[in-house]
Amino acid sequence: MSAILSIAGLRKSFDAVVVADDTTFDVTEGEALGVLGPNGAGKTSLFNLITGALRPDAGRIAFAGQDITTHSAAARCKEGIARSFQIPQPFGGMTVFENALVGATQGAGLHGREAEAHAVDVLEETGLMPKANTRAGALSLLERKRLELARAMAAKPKLLLLDEIAGGLTDAECVALIDTIKRIHAGGTTIIWIEHVLHALLVVVERVIVIDFGRQIAEGDPAQIMETPEVKEIYLGIDADA
């Protein structure tokens, strides 16, 4: 299988703070990749670089065989990259259905009844149908997280970026959300998922990369990666040299 996303030599810094330091990796079409790392390691910045919200200082990003390094965020969404935000960014004055419709009409480029039908489909898939006519500003945290997912899926992405979508949820809520994400992945969508809730991440992803201070410090099979000293140090506070 070919790489749908190919990142090479990506660098980005804000003055002294380096958020991407020669980041290089490929994501295969249909894969689910996990991204781990401590707070401030540059995980969300990596998403911002992939979606075009940030411009890299150096390096290139290719998506579906095309160099998209200079493309705008809006163009990248139309090309097939959609994301959920760590802190939900609902269109608060619009209904849940209208939120999804924005993704369907603007991102996926659908029109009229076709767009409305697709928006209904993603609301059913993400379990938000009972809230379709509710103003998004009035939703609970779980519902906001689901809305992030629904809106991204409404844009019909080939590559879906999930930014700590399970954070802050109860275990029961988390299980339901994982089911939805598994279904989306089984439908052929490539996923990159940043998550601190490891048990959620590890039932979905097939491979993980670990980032710290913008550097990739480990990459590979999730179970093996969790056993490496670097990751143990980050997540369990165990001194790697001990």
Partner: peptide, 24 residues
């Protein structure tokens, strides 16, 4: 219209709107 839907989305969140394919 659909462009109006895009504008309403911009009203509520510019960062999410640009991530959903809207040229702000």
């Amino acid at each position: 219209s659909r462009r109006g839907l895009a504008l309403t989305a911009i009203r509520d969140s510019e960062v999410a709107a640009s991530g959903l394919g809207i040229d702000i």
